[in-house]
Design a protein around this nucleic acid. Structure first.
Length: 590
DNA sequence: ATACGGACTTAGTACTTATACT
DNA sequence: AGTATAAGTACTAAGTCCGTAT
């Protein structure tokens, strides 16, 4: 169902993309001089290559609060009998107990991993008794946490205010650092609390215990001459170092996959902003190379060398957005594609069906050029379903090739480029200057949506969707009736004025006219909302908005069409894109 | 050549806060 | 004032890509 819908939207998008592209003029790629200067924050002197800061000072991460044992009245039962657990075992039991109503706890892998790790936390005696998860009864524990959550909801205004102030105090103390003399916001200043690992898709490690992070696990990164953060009383840092070629302030190794987690700056920080800007400048630079690159890989479809052919087809997929990246593309297996000589009235159709990032399904049927089709037939010949489609291709060799085509070019750049170009084209095609603000916003969201569909950014239909749609429809109905009523009254007032011809009846007439206008406007806005909502059901806009769309495109559009930028970007989004807002640029072209 | 680890970006969902409604 | 819903933010898993070790 969802797939079919997305397919339809994709088809529509493909049509829209055929709109002839107006040749855009723009400044020197990558040049800062092309932007309007504004204030000092984005225009400080450059650091030498690879150096991220000269001064870095912070308080270290804020640690998750220690475990609070359950009150006496809350008990765990084994095989129907109450059982008092040791603190360590109890803590892990609460991780499971609070998830009891979650689907995870029905999954065999999750249960097995949890039980296995839980037993490691038990005392010898406990391990002797607790041998089967099926005999464990966590319901009291579960109820305890449900009640606790409910209690939080009904706090008085004052109590809530107090909690808010405490959070704010914490944010002020731990949530900022000093970087090269500027106070910058940190992204994640709290260590991740212990709990049960929730992998996405059918992750083999789901349910495993994610250990509590201790100061002894944490490496601190700060400048030598800064105030070195103090570890919590009675504890030590694993290490304190001063590496100004990296952006992280603290790091630790997590216990599930043995990978490093970092404390980094918030996206609104100058450093992150500069990186994002740089990213978009690289993508803009691709504009000047993309025609050449395309004709080159098309020529390579007929190369003598198998490796070159595979690379050329892979690159075509990356460019077309059928694969997000080199890794995804290079690891495409025979079982992920199906070839149809003819489908949906098109020739040479490739059907993709595979799980991408976060186990999100990518399904698409696309007509491809004949040589691509022929090549795929060749690549699939005499292979098992599990074999690599591009067996002669590695991520390293493909990326190396990309670097030769353009400095700084990677597969990711194509995504950014295609997303931003699509937004710009769509905005051009959809926006009408004479439209109301509401209609313009709908156009913007549609353009954004086109990109999100292109990038396969999906979301689960919210459980309350049907209900809230119903509510909206009811509102529209009510508004329609109000409009009808206002129209009738206007008619009456007009007749009255015609008969009387006096000032009083004229002012009544004016008032009725204004009322009708206002109601019609409200109705228009409501129906725009309804359309937007329906189209947005299973498409997530934020990922592309935050990561792939050059904000300068949106800002220029807002200025050109007199749409307040707050209608497009929320407060934090405006902070994240402060660098772009500072540049102004009504006539920015990507 | 390949594997692996480190650093940084991207991703969907869970949770919180603001706003609309009664 | 209290509640329902929408909007916005926080969280953390899962990617990419690079450099280095094997």
């Amino acid at each position: 169902m969802r797939v079919v819908r997305l397919l339809r939207l994709r088809a529509a998008l493909t049509l829209l993309r055929e709109v002839p592209r107006r040749l855009a003029s723009r400044g020197v790629p990558g040049s800062r001089r092309t932007q309007k200067g504004s204030g000092t924050r984005w225009e400080e002197e450059k650091r030498e290559d690879g150096v991220k800061w000269r001064q870095l000072e912070h308080k270290g991460p804020y640690f998750a609060p220690p475990y609070e044992p359950l009150p006496d009245g809350v008990c765990f039962f084994y095989d129907g009998k109450p059982m008092r657990l040791s603190v360590k075992a109890e803590e892990v039991a609460t991780f499971y107990g609070r998830m009891l109503d979650h689907e995870y706890t029905t999954k065999e892998v999750f249960r097995k991993n949890f039980f296995n790790d839980w037993r490691k936390e038990m005392t010898v005696e406990e391990r002797e008794v607790i041998k089967s998860l099926d005999k464990c009864d966590f319901t009291e524990i579960h109820r305890y946490f449900v009640d606790k959550a409910a209690a939080r909801k009904v706090l008085t205004r004052e109590e809530k205010q107090k909690l808010k102030e405490e959070a704010e105090k914490l944010q002020q103390e731990f949530g900022y650092c000093i970087l090269d003399g500027h106070r910058e916001k940190i992204g994640n200043f709290k260590t991740e609390p212990p709990g049960l690992f929730r992998g996405r898709g059918d992750h083999p490690k789901m349910g495993m215990l994610k250990r509590r992070v201790m100061p002894e696990d944490v490496v601190i990164n700060c400048s030598r001459d800064s105030k070195i953060p103090k570890p919590p009383a009675g504890h030590q840092w694993k290490e304190v170092r001063s590496d100004n070629t990296v952006m992280w302030l603290a790091a630790w190794t997590e216990s599930i996959q043995n990978t490093i987690k970092y404390v980094m700056l918030n996206p609104c920080s100058k450093l992150k902003g500069e990186k994002a800007w740089q990213k978009f400048e690289t993508a803009r630079r691709l504009r000047g190379f993309v025609d050449e690159i395309r004709s080159q890989y098309q020529a390579d479809w007929k190369s003598q060398e198998m490796k070159t052919r595979q690379r050329a087809v892979a690159l075509y997929f990356i460019d077309k957005g059928e694969a997000a990246d080199t890794v995804g593309c290079c690891s495409l297996r025979v079982e992920h594609v199906q070839l149809h000589p003819e489908a949906d009235g098109c020739q040479h159709v490739v059907e993709f069906d595979f799980l991408g990032k976060d186990s999100i399904r990518y399904y698409n049927r696309v007509p491809v050029e004949k040589p691509v089709y022929k090549n795929l037939q060749l690549f699939m010949k005499n292979k098992d379903p599990q074999d690599d489609l591009f067996d002669r291709l590695t991520t390293t060799s493909l990326n190396k090739h990309l670097h030769e085509l353009m400095d700084g070019l990677t597969a990711k750049v194509f995504r950014t480029y295609n997303a931003s170009v699509t937004l710009q084209e769509q905005l051009r095609a959809l926006t009408r200057a004479e439209d109301s603000i509401a209609a313009k916003i709908l156009s913007y969201n549609r353009a954004n949506r086109a990109v999100a569909i292109l990038c396969n950014h999906q979301r689960a239909t919210s459980s309350t969707f049907e209900k809230s749609m119903q509510n909206l429809q009811t509102k529209i109905q009510v508004k329609k009736e109000q409009v009808a009523e206002a129209r009738a009254e206007l008619r009456k007032a007009r007749a009255e004025h015609k008969a009387q011809g006096d000032g009083k009846s004229r002012s009544v007439l004016e008032k009725k006219r204004r009322l009708l206008e206002k109601l019609q406007e409200q109705l228009a806005w409501l129906s725009v909302q309804a359309t937007d909502k329906e189209e947005n059901k299973q498409v997530a806009l934020n990922t592309s908005k935050l990561n792939y769309l050059d904000p300068r495109i949106s800002i220029a559009w807002c200025k050109r069409f007199r749409v307040p930028v707050e209608k497009i970007y929320s407060k934090t989004q405006r902070e994240r894109f402060a660098w772009a807002l500072a540049m102004g640029g009504e006539d920015f072209e990507f």
